[in-house]
Design a protein around this nucleic acid. Structure first.
Length: 183
DNA sequence: CTATTGATTGAT
DNA sequence: TCAATCAATAGG
């Protein structure tokens, strides 16, 4: 898994087009990654900016560590740790194109049309049915990264929902894909 | 645009 | 201890 050994900024682009697969008791749920954001320790918007704490400890783990955090009192977001262990870098997964397990995703997000199953960081966590029990675990067991086709055009722009570091263009998405959270 | 919701953080 | 903040979403 060479891609997650790279710095977060590069890995975020490499992850676009790859498949995220979650093995559940109800079946396989999978989607293509179409939107990501990079966060590093020198980045004022990153959870790791002020050093390691109990909450962000998984970000300082080895590459391929899963970091799932709880925010706004109601949402979970999924990150994949990149770079060497101890660097505090990760890539936030913001958008997925559903591939497998559509029935499971729909049941996890009742009342939502298919286009709104996975077009946002907290939405895709809910659709996959990912549990905070995975926080701190390694990729490759329940949650798996599988190779895919690199997208033709990648758009680079500013990240969403942050104040500090807002000018840094570390949001990446597949041009024209309907499962990108915003345009 | 606002309400929602609770853990985390930094200031008293 | 208390108040502000927060990598978001849904509904009007």
């Amino acid at each position: 898994m060479k891609n997650i050994l790279l710095t977060a900024e590069v890995a975020a682009k490499e992850l676009l087009g790859m498949q995220l697969v979650y093995e559940t008791v109800r079946g396989r749920v999978a989607g293509k990654i179409v939107e990501t954001e990079a966060y590093t320790q020198i980045d004022p918007a990153s959870h790791s900016f002020r050093g390691q704490t109990k909450r962000n400890a998984p970000m300082f783990g080895p590459p391929g560590t899963i970091y799932i955090y709880f925010t706004y009192g109601m949402h979970h977001c999924l990150n994949i740790v990149t770079g060497p262990e101890g660097k505090g870098e990760a890539v936030l997964i913001r958008g997925l194109e559903p591939i497998e397990g559509l029935e499971i995703m729909r049941s996890n997000r009742l009342g939502r049309p298919d286009e709104e199953l996975t077009n946002g960081p907290a939405k895709l966590v809910q659709a996959l049915g990912v549990d905070s029990k995975l926080n701190g675990q390694q990729l490759g067991k329940l949650l798996i990264l599988e190779p895919g086709e690199a997208p033709q055009t990648i758009i680079e722009t500013t990240r969403i929902g942050i104040k500090n570091g807002a000018e840094i263009k570390w949001r990446f998405y597949v041009a024209g894909n309907p499962f990108v959270s915003r345009t």
